[in-house]
Computed example of a mutant assay.
Amino acid sequence: MKEVDRIEVCETPLNVAAEYAALQGNSGDGACALFVGSVRDFNAGRDVCGLNLEYYPGMTEKSLQGIARDARRRWPLGRVTIVHRVGPMQINDEIVFVGVTSPHRQAAFAACQYIMDRLKTEAPFWKREAVADQAGNAIERWVEARASDVAEMEKWSAG
């Protein structure tokens, strides 16, 4: 099994079909699991108009590489792809693509969820949402980590 990791932080729209196609090709991997996250129009009780993600170049990619490496230590993985978008985004734009291949589906599902849980709680990204105030004007607010994301991550520490 050839191990290949693709880690990228980009300002351009994600090409989900191309990312999925690039995961294919390991004859020993019978499973592929992926997750695609998008900008939603509602969060924390407010209508969302858009999102802006910031990051620290170099540090963020290193963090993502460490997350992929840790997933490999837990499960037999062939290919790992983490592509995360930064910059201004509109509703329904894809933010993140996580894909993994493995000989078996259980490992692929678990590794994909583990990577996403780590991204949500540890990766150095900063989110600013544009939300509508009571008068309908767009204002920006920083998005804090959710307790539910932290709880999901804690499950991996216990197991």
Rank of each mutant, 00 (worst) to 15 (best):
G45Q: 10
D93K: 00
S148L: 12
I115F: 02
A68Y: 03
S63C: 15
V131F: 10
G37S: 06
G30M: 00
T121H: 10
P124R: 11
V86K: 11
A18V: 08
V36A: 04
Q65Y: 06
N15W: 07
E19A: 14
F97Q: 02
D93T: 02
N92Y: 09
G78M: 04
D29I: 14
F35Y: 06
R146A: 15
N52S: 14
V16I: 14
V143K: 10
P57A: 08
R74K: 14
I67N: 05
P57Q: 08
R73E: 06
A22L: 03
E152A: 15
K120D: 02
G159I: 15
E122H: 13
E54M: 10
Y20G: 07
R79P: 04
L51P: 01
Q113D: 14
F35N: 04
R128T: 14
E3N: 13
R6N: 09
P103Y: 04
R69Y: 11
L14S: 07
E11N: 14
V48T: 05
L51A: 04
A22I: 07
L34S: 11
A31E: 00
S148T: 14
E154P: 12
E54C: 13
I7E: 11
V48R: 04
E3T: 12
A107F: 01
T12D: 10
R40Y: 02
A18W: 03
G25W: 02
V9E: 05
K155V: 09
V80E: 02
K2V: 13
A31I: 00
G87P: 09
E144V: 12
W75R: 01
H104R: 00
I82F: 04
Y20V: 11
C112E: 01
L34R: 03
V4G: 07
G45N: 12
